[in-house]
Each structure stands twice: as structure tokens, then as C-alpha cells.
Design a binder for these strands. Sequence first.
RNA 1: GCCGUCGUAGCUCAGCCUGGUAGAGCGUGUGCUUGGUAAGCACAAGGUCGCGGGAUCGAAUCCCGUCGACGGCUCCA
Length: 670
Amino acid sequence: MSEKEKKMSVAKGKPIAQSIPGGLLPSIVAARIDGTLVDLSFVPDHEVEVELIKADSEEGLRILRHSAAHLTAQAVLSLYRNAKLNAGPPTEDGFYYDIQMDPISSEDLGKIEEKMKELSARKLKIERVEMSREELEREFSNNKFKLDKIVAKVKPGHKSTVYRQGDFQDFCTGPHVPDTSYLSAVKLLSVASTNYMGDVTKEKMVRIYGTAFPDKKSLDQFLAMREESMKRDHRKIGQEMDLFTFNSERAPGFPLYAPNGQWIRSRMVGFMKDLNERYGWQEVWTPHLFRDTMWKQSGHYAKYKDNMYLFQLSDGDSYAIKPMNCPGHITIFERTMYSYRDLPVKYFEAGTVYRYEKSGEVGGLTRPRAFTIDDGHAFLRMDQMVTEIAAVLSMVKEAFSAFFHKPEMIYDLSVIDKENYDNYLISYHCNSCDSISDIRKAAVEELKCPVCGSTELEPDFSRWDAATEALKNALVSNDIPFKEYPGEAAFYGPKIDIHVKDALGRSWQLSTVQLDFFMPINFDLNFINEQGKKETPVMVHRAIYGSYERFMVILLESYAGKLPTWISPLQCYVVPVSQSFSDYGRKVEKALKARGIRAILDDTNETMNRKIRNIRRQRPSYIVVVGGKESETNTVSVRNREEKQTVYDLEKFIDAISREIDEREIQQTL
RNA sequence: GCCGUCGUAGCUCAGCCUGGUAGAGCGUGUGCUUGGUAAGCACAAGGUCGCGGGAUCGAAUCCCGUCGACGGCUCCA
């Protein structure tokens, strides 16, 4: 349907639905008049131009799913008499309904779904009814959650609406689909538990997740996609490819990398090391433990001690395992004096940090208790910010282009909210003694000048402005479109976060570039400026992958485990046709390994067919079959991931695959 | 941390409701077979049924506790 066809004019005094051609009607769920969404049953009081909302449009789907949420609620109420409804909004790819009721399990969903199908088949008319606030309060008098909403949303003396279908009604502004027959392609997906208004002290609720589509075909397509993304779960792939393991008894939440997984990690670390060095970042190493005194100084202890692994030695000294790398890097920076000419000083480290995540929060490699950050800290003069940040942005681009074909990246600039700055560390100018001090208002009892005690302090945003300008300029000079989020900055400075979209359309926050005014002050860092005076440097915290663990998750799930050859843990799987060709197989394996290609020869007493079938789960880049023909001509029969088979001269094959690896080709070239 | 579901062989799972001390497929090992690109044949090994307690003549099975995993909620420097 073109833009033109979507618009139509509707005469006064008759429902919109009656003006829509019969053939078109079933695909339309609602309409828009002057920017407001209305039901198809809406009767205009003068001739109007309406825009039709198709079921398969973004807005149409939301309406359809919201109606499906109502249908779920209706089914639940008819099956569970004591259930009390809370709210049931549409979500990005479905809907949920929060209901106070006795816990149910996912097995009960089938029963509810049956009921929904039955209600849908009855083609119940969905009606909009206007009610005054008083009427609403009467209608929903037995439901505290609805009453809360009515009180919060409907002003006394005003009206709002309920939607009715059969014996069911819900307080709702709509719009909704005309009748329940529109809701035939529905599926309840899972059940979870939540609390009223997300507050643990409030009532427990059952949250039922589901989705709905205009027709069964698109629902099935969605379910197939969902299945696919479950198949691509990195935990499953990791097990199949034998990359890592978790031992829930011995180290809950900590991944242990098997040879294949560690091989991938070292490749990633190696790539990053090379990239960093090319951009002037120097590798350092810091210990995994520091005295608690350092964490107290850095401020981490006060804020995050519940998430830190802390322990005391028998002599009484207390230590903490590092939850961050920056104080370590600062400690290295502190070892000597710097002139303004020495700056920038840029350190990086693949630094493994340990954070005690609460039991319900850990999960696979996405949220482990130990992870390794490709962490970098730069110490800069104010005038170096733009250049250095721009350089980091180039690094980010380069890094992701090596792993993905045309990666889709989204840049968020998080800045201070000047209307609401109590939480941020800012400079205050004292009107009484003219001194400047850095204070975070939310962290002090009373805002007063640390020099003279005066309360006549005026916020000075100049440093924040300069930093924000620097980040912006860096983005602009790299030709990067970005969105600005006031109030999202860290308390110590503004930042740029970079999200990358994966193959399944999910967006991951990976890179971050943060400016920090706080740590340098806290640790009293300085350099000698042109005037021969001590000056405080600005710190940049940055990570490109974010963590190696999360990045590995994205790689595995994006490629469904079929990684580009340069990071594939099994680059060549060599299979002799029969054991009588083991010798030639060994020769091939040796030749491959001599060139640094990760290859294994499988000369076990099994059929070639079985070997090929079973190696699939390990996702080899190439399967190399050798037999009589190959051994006589010094060739190999190579099968790539598209199942295409080609015979190559052995030396030529090795040259070609080496090139593919060296060039970090994303697609297979053979 | 909270709520729900789950925990049986290396992996995937059955058995649990209705108690009588475990089963399949894949994988592994051995033998036969010696093969041309996703299922050749046979035999075998492999499990304190997460852990602890309780009621029972008897528990993988029922009850309680605990640890862990998963899905959510909340959190994520």
C-alpha cells in the first residue's frame, strides 16, 4: 500500500471501518486522525482525512499486541478466578501482562493459549466505553492496581475509557483491533516473575510474555528466528566447539577457557595489542591484588565494596582483588614526574577484573564474575583531548571492521544535565575568597568553600564544557553521527558509548570513551606545565571490545560459531579417505602446521562420512580430504563452509589459506 | 538479593505425578570393516540420580534445607 492509499477521507456520522473497502479492511487495525490514533469504530463528527494503520506496520503491531495482551488477561481471568490484573503493554517484539496470581509454570501457558484461541475464534467485538473517573473507580473497585492507575491518570471530573470484549474489560486508552478474530496468530512464550512497579517491597506478580502477528505465517517466521537465536546461544556453541567450561561447584560464574577458546582469545588480544601499539598506547601489567587502602582512596571501596572480593591476611592487612584497572595504571603513572611535553601518556592492558555479581545476575560469558577488559588509560593536557579522542574513535572503527563486514555502529554522547548537577563533580567558584574547588554536591553534607568556608559558591562548568566540546569535535571530525543524552554522563565526566548491532539485530554496548576529572584530583596527579607550575591532567578511560568475554559472545552468536578463518580454532580438518592414506595426511598436516595454520589430522579408524558429520559441531573452516588421487598428484580436496569442493595443489592451498588468515578475510576465499 | 523453573552418563534427554536402589540416542573404547565428502556392523566401559537432612521396611521419585544453572525483576563503577 502506497503512502497515498493509506490516506482516505471519511464522512461524518459513520464509523471509519465502513469507509474502508472490504478487501482492505482485515489488514487494518486502527486509524490516525490529526496525529491521534483511534479505533476503526470511531465515528467522526465532521468529514476528516484519516490515515489507516496496517497490522504489519510498527504501530499496527503494537496495537495488535496490546490487544493480544488484553486477550491473555481475559483468558487468565476466566481460568484463574483470583487473578488481579496490573498492566499489559506491548514490547519490542511482543507483549507481556503482569498479573497478581498464584505462580504458574510455563506448562500452564498452553492451557491459557488454548483459551485465547477459543476467545479469538468467537470473534468478540472489542468495544470502547467512556467512563467518568467515579464510574471507573466503581468498575475496578476490587483491583488495587487498576485503581492506582485510575487515580494517577484520570483527573477528578475527567473521563477516560475502558475496552470491553465479552465479559472482560480493562482500563485502557486504546486503540485496539475491532474484534478478537484479529488475534488468531498469538503465542505465549514464557512466564517470569516481577514485582508491582518493579519494587521488591511491593506485591509479587506473574509476568506472562507472548507475541502476536497479523497472520500465522509471520508468527511462524518469528518463532523460527527465535529458535535460531536460541540455537546460536554462545553457551551451546561454546560447548559444541569446546571453547570454555563453567564449573558451578568450584568457581560459580567464572569461565575457564579450554584450548580452543583460549586460542580465540589470544588472537583477539594479539590483534588489540598490535592496534594499540600502532596508536601509541604502551602495554603495561598490573597485579590482580591491591591493598584495600588504594581502593578506599580511589573511591571504589565506598561505592562498590559489596561487589568486590575482599579478604584479610593473618597479619591483619586487607586486600581486594581488582574490580577495575585504572588505579593500577594511575599507580604506574605516579612513579615519576612529567613535563607537559611528556603528555599524552597512554597505557593499556588486557586486564582481568573480578566483580562479585549477585547470584541472579551471572550468566554465561555475557555476565561473568571475571572478565578481561581491553583497558586503556590516557593522561592528557586539556588541549590534547580532541586529538586523542578522535584517535580512539578511529581505533574503534578499525577494530570492528576487522571482525565484521560493515559493522553497524551507534554512538551515544552522554553529557551533564546542567539543570540538575548535584550528582556531578564540578568546579565551584567561591565568591568570597575567589578560590576554585572541585566538589560533588551529592557527596558532601553541606556545600561550602573548602578554603574559607563560605557558602557563596557558584558552579563553573568550563571544564565540563571543554570536555563535552572535545568529545563532540572528535565525533564530528570523524564524520560520525551521534545522539546526545543529557544527564547520562558519569559523575566524573562526559563519555561516548558505542553500540554495535549483531547479526540478529541485537544492539550491544561495547566501546566506551570516558573523560575523567575525578581520579586525577583524587590521586593528586600532576604534570609541570609551561609556566613551571603543577597542573592536573585529564584522564581518558577507554575500552574498545569492552570485555573479551562479551566480544566473544557477539562473535560466536553473529557467526553462529563459523568464525572468520583467522580466528577459527580449527582452520583445517584433514581426513584421509582411508587409513592407507594416513601417511599423506600426516604430510599435509605437517605442511599446514609448519605455516602456522591450525590443523588436525584425523586418522582414526572411522569412516570418512562419520568424521565429517561429527566434526561439524566444531565448525572447521576447511575440511581437507586426501586419498589416492591427492597423494599421487600432491594435491588436496578442500571443502569450504558452503559445502563447495575444490582440488588444489597442496602448496597453492597453503599459500591461499595463509593469505586469507594474514589478511583477516571475513569471508572464506577458497 | 527477589520470584519462577530446573539439576539423572562427556553431550541431549526419558524415568519422578502413581516410591521397590536407573534407561535411550550421540560421543568414547575395542574388534570387524578400509571407505571419495552429513548415520557401515558388533561388543564394551561409563551414573554416590547436585549436596545435606527428614518421614518410609524401602527414595532418582515424597517433604525440608542448601548449592548451582536458566528465565525474569533489580543492579551493572
